[in-house]
């Protein structure tokens, strides 16, 4: 094809200018429309404790070496029991702090005697791997005061969360960053 030698450049330029204007307008419109219902803060990933089925993927699928999901404790929901379904193995011989009687695979739950008959359980986040084993134990026998949450000081907030992708309870969702936790108990109200 041999273009008309006199005009080609300006004609092509005109065409290009028009298209460029259109493209810019398109991008601006799209952005504007979406900005209309955008949130100024980012959204972050969080686990809905009511949907969590403790599939173990929080421990295995996070892109971090040690998952950003940790077990947290709603103290005001806890019964402070001596026999804790989340702390002791189901077949524990004794209700003591011996490693072989602990349910947690990384020994991340600390138990402390407060007064008869109450014991306080705290999570050592540095040790917790977010497997949810204790969550299941606590939920089966106790009040469900132990539950999993994404800890935002650790989470990288991947655009495509590797755990959310495979969460067997479809419990992961994006929440506004100014209310980044889905808490149980009075703090969750």
């Amino acid at each position: 094809m041999k273009p008309d030698e006199k005009q080609p450049v300006s004609r092509r330029d005109f065409f290009r200018d028009g298209l460029r204007g259109l493209a810019a307008l398109g991008v601006a419109t799209l952005s504007g429309l979406l900005m209309h219902r955008s949130v100024s803060r980012r959204t972050v990933w969080q686990i809905d404790p009511d949907k969590c089925v403790q599939c173990g993927r929080c421990a295995t699928d996070c892109v971090l070496d040690v998952s950003a999901v940790k077990c947290v404790h709603a103290y005001d929901v806890c019964g402070y029991c001596e026999l804790c379904g989340g702390y002791s193995k189901p077949d524990a011989h004794r209700l003591d702090t011996a490693a072989e009687n602990q349910l947690c695979p990384s020994g991340a739950i600390r138990r402390q005697f407060i007064e008869d008959p109450y014991f306080e359980y705290t999570i050592d986040e540095a040790k917790c791997i977010g497997c949810g084993k204790c969550v299941k134990g606590c939920g089966s026998f106790g009040n469900g005061s132990l539950y999993l949450q994404v800890r935002h000081d650790r989470c990288l907030q991947c655009n495509d969360c590797a755990i959310a992708r495979n969460c067997a309870g479809e419990a992961f969702r994006r929440v506004p960053a100014d209310r980044p936790y889905l808490l149980k108990g009075e703090q969750g109200l």
């Binding site: 709603a74 103290y75 407060i114 007064e115 935002h152 980044p180 108990g185």
Partner: peptide
């Protein structure tokens, strides 16, 4: 709805911590 333990000692019930991510 269930009863909370009533502690006779001066035990203070901790709150669940909620560390923030990166700031705005």
């Amino acid at each position: 709805r269930f009863p909370k333990p009533e502690f006779e000692s001066a035990y203070q019930q901790p709150r669940t911590t909620t560390p923030d991510g990166r700031g705005h």
